[in-house]
Design a protein around this nucleic acid. Structure first.
Lengths: 121, 121
DNA sequence: TAATAAATCTAGAAACATTCTAAAATGTGA
DNA sequence: TCACATTTTAGAATGTTTCTAGATTTATTA
């Protein structure tokens, strides 16, 4: 656990956003001004291997990082641009039946309108 | 509908693979040797806007193209590397309830072992 | 058919996110 | 402290996708 890795974890856990690598780099620089991009990428990869964070890929192809590794769904709101977490109970079993497979992990992305934006409309 | 676009659609519909843009470019070149990369990308984007094909992004961040636009799940087999389609009946309603949202589209990616690989093991 | 306009294509340059490389810095155990 | 392994840094390199400018094709009208 180096200072650099601690700074990256601190950034990830400071709020509930799902940041891009570049955003994490910028925020980590506020803590450690000399940190380099490669260090951010290396540590994000290491943290994902250690199952401490999860990398999620948006529909556009860019990566974002989730401070939790536990599999859950992500709602990408088309109104506010927010990314919201949710879980479906018994989801593993449902998709194992539908896909006829043993599920190691899953990533469910929804494009839609979140309840807050729906109420404001 | 130009010859180029027809060639790209022909490649996409010739088999059940989920090709990358580069693979589609190479295969389209066998039909139209002078076709350019930008044409392939432009047409893939146009075809997705027209809801004739669907772009899916892998866990690694690379894009692959599905010859069907109808939303369905994708199983990425960790043994054979194949990408397999599947559907879950009533899935829209289930995730709308769990995520408290109105679903426009979804993309469900599973990492696991397909039934064929499971039988061979 | 000829002239014109609009859309599309091509080739290569540019942009972007990510990975690699080699050297410098840091941490660890004897 | 010394040697060794690990990590970091800065910038170059890579791979994918987009942009650009000019050429080609297609469609339209006379």
């Amino acid at each position: 656990m180096t200072r650099q890795r601690a700074a990256i974890l601190q950034v990830l856990r400071s709020d509930k956003c799902h940041h891009t690598a570049e955003e994490i780099f910028d925020l980590a620089k506020e803590i450690l001004p000399t940190i380099s991009r490669a260090t951010v990428y290396n540590n994000l990869k290491a943290l994902e291997d250690e199952m401490l964070i999860r990398r999620i890929v948006t529909e556009e192809g860019g990566a974002r990082y989730d401070s939790s590794y536990i599999p859950h769904g992500h709602l990408f709101c088309s109104e506010c641009g927010g990314i919201f977490d949710f879980t479906i109970p018994e989801f593993h079993k449902a998709i194992e039946g539908a896909a006829d497979c043993v599920v190691d992990s899953y990533e469910l992305k929804i494009r839609g309108v979140c309840s807050a934006c729906r109420k404001n409309a």
